[in-house]
């Protein structure tokens, strides 16, 4: 039995609900940190950034699931929906903190989106993710059939927009956003030749 088989065996025993509970606990924990001083004397920006980075991390994790199965044989497919929904959850938390605690004046929401390209880009990523979250249930998968797969390719442009959003808001030359964007692009590129190869082969 190879290592991957053993890991896959262990993963089969991990219930999906546990992934939801553990991974979603990040937001309330960070919120508590913000209230209790754990995020420093100015917690709003810290909370906003941490939630955004968590969204990006789960986005990357979600994009890695298919390549990991194809290239390494690691089977995380049963967690894919959870990872996608957790990503959306952190995007929503990030957006809420920005609108309610950071911006504060909800009347300026639209003008900020129009005036600031990095916000427009982030908002576009969010909008693309809404139909994915809405159709992430079994009923939608059945009803949409083949269209479901096509629809859920929206996660690719959403991921690029998310990475670009992070890059655009950096002050000074920063490595982290470039690393995120590079990983996202790499995870998308990995898919291209494989698909073409399959088509040629078929």
């Amino acid at each position: 039995m190879t290592l991957i088989d053993r890991v896959n065996g262990l993963l089969r025993r991990v219930p999906v609900w546990a992934v939801y509970v553990v991974c979603m606990a990040g937001a309330p924990w960070l919120f508590w940190q913000g209230i209790s001083g754990g995020l420093g004397p100015e917690p709003v920006k810290g909370l906003e950034r941490e939630l955004g980075e968590l969204a990006l991390k789960f986005l990357v994790a979600g994009l890695a699931i298919t390549p990991l199965r194809r290239l390494v044989g690691l089977n995380l497919m049963k967690f894919r929906r959870a990872v996608g929904l957790i990503t959306f959850y952190y995007v929503c938390c990030h957006l809420l903190v920005w609108a309610v605690l950071d911006l504060q004046v909800l009347g300026q929401l639209w003008s900020e989106i129009v005036k600031r390209p990095y916000i427009a880009v982030g908002m576009a990523a969010f909008v693309l993710m809404v139909p994915l979250a809405v159709t992430s249930n079994n009923a939608s998968v059945r009803r949409l059939g083949a269209k479901w797969r096509t629809l859920h390719r929206l996660v690719y442009p959403a991921a690029i927009l998310g990475g670009v959003h992070y890059l655009m808001l950096a002050k000074g030359f920063r490595l982290e956003p470039l690393v995120y964007l590079a990983i996202i692009v790499a995870l998308l590129l990995i898919r291209l030749p494989v698909r073409r190869w399959i088509r040629v082969g078929a």
Binding site: F31, G34, P43, R116, Y118
Partner: peptide
């Protein structure tokens, strides 16, 4: 990238 019309006073909380 952001408005300068208002500011957040450090130490004033979440």
């Amino acid at each position: 990238r952001w408005s300068q019309a208002s500011e957040r006073r450090v130490g004033s909380g979440l």
